[in-house]
């Protein structure tokens, strides 16, 4: 079949990058026992801030850095609302999503005097590593992505190490499973939660930056269009474990890439665009029987 070519693999990697970054970031919050539904809002903020600061400073790297900082600051503010003010995690996250939609539009007008969208003067470069071509078959596919794509792959070994091989990871897992017990062992539960949410913020910001600066070269209103929710679904389906989440996000990326590919074959685009969402629902349904045990089974956890 012609559609199952190597270039499909390559575009899977491209489409999956923001999903992987956001989902890997999201799992940090979940490891700390924070049900973080803000990924969508954080990604949107991340897209906008990275473009805004790139426009303002004229330097892509400064744009990325300041974008990540602002996005992380906003993530921590949400953290304050749920950790210290006791707000419902899902309700407040939806508020955060609306705040992101309104806030990005507002700032685009206020700071950049633009409506609808803003072009970035600079884009993330495609990196070509000659030695990668030496890898048989996949060499050409693995090559030629943005720095953030490679970074998204690095998150897997990095997060596995941090979560399972560092004292911080030990605290993180303890806080996520039994916060009172962690507190009794002298772990600063608030610090662990805030830091986990901040890491989610950094990752989602980079995910948004990949969309805006890596793929499109611009920011448009509500450009994340549910990708953050798909990333969230990956966190849930992957049971917030790094390897599983990574693979699920990659799979969702494949669904997206397949959609793009099939569109080129003259199939109705409206229906095709629903494919990733349908797949997410199916996957959630198949995983749900273990992740959410509810009233009907008679075993509800808190």
């Amino acid at each position: 079949m012609e559609i199952l070519t190597l270039s499909l693999v390559s575009s899977t990697l491209v489409v999956a990058t923001p999903l992987i970054l956001a989902a890997m970031g999201g799992l940090f919050s979940h490891q700390a026992g924070i049900f973080n539904f803000t990924l969508e809002g954080l990604m949107l903020f991340g897209s906008f801030f990275s473009v805004m600061f790139t426009v303002l400073t004229g330097n892509l790297w400064v744009g990325l850095l300041l974008g990540a900082l602002s996005c992380t600051a906003l993530a921590v503010i949400w953290g304050w609302v749920v950790v210290d003010l006791g707000a419902d995690q899902i309700i407040s996250a939806l508020g955060f999503m609306l705040l992101a939609q309104g806030g990005t539009v507002f700032l685009m007008i206020a700071v950049l005097s633009q409506t609808g969208g803003v072009f970035s003067p600079l884009q993330l470069d495609i990196i070509r590593l000659p030695w990668l071509n030496a890898v048989p078959v996949l060499g050409s596919v693995l090559n030629g992505h943005t720095l953030l794509t490679y970074l998204s792959w690095l998150t897997l070994p990095l997060f596995l190490f941090v979560i399972y091989r560092t004292p911080y990871g030990l605290s993180l897992r303890a806080v996520g499973e039994k916060p009172e017990a962690a507190a009794a062992a002298g772990i600063n539960v608030r610090f662990v939660r805030y830091s986990a949410i901040a890491i989610t913020g950094v990752c989602c910001s980079l995910a948004g930056a990949q969309l805006a600066l890596g793929l499109l070269g611009m920011f448009t209103d509500n450009m994340t269009a549910g990708r953050g929710i798909i990333a969230f679904a990956a966190v849930i389906f992957g049971r917030h474990r790094p390897l599983q989440v990574f693979l699920v996000a990659l799979f969702f990326g494949f669904a997206g890439a397949l959609t793009d590919r099939l569109q080129g074959f003259g199939l109705p685009s409206e229906l095709l665009l629903t494919l990733p969402y349908v797949m997410t629902v199916v996957v959630l349904a198949l995983s749900g029987w273990r992740t959410f045990t509810r009233a009907q089974s008679g075993h509800v956890k808190a």
Binding site: V81, D84, G86, A87, D88, I91, S92, G95, G102, G103
Partner: peptide, 20 residues
């Protein structure tokens, strides 16, 4: 921009369950 109203709505939702 009427987006200021979204910001208003978003922050209401953000805080409405923050009982502490």
């Amino acid at each position: 921009s009427k987006s200021i109203i979204w910001i208003l709505q978003g922050s209401i939702i953000l805080f409405v369950s923050a009982y502490r």
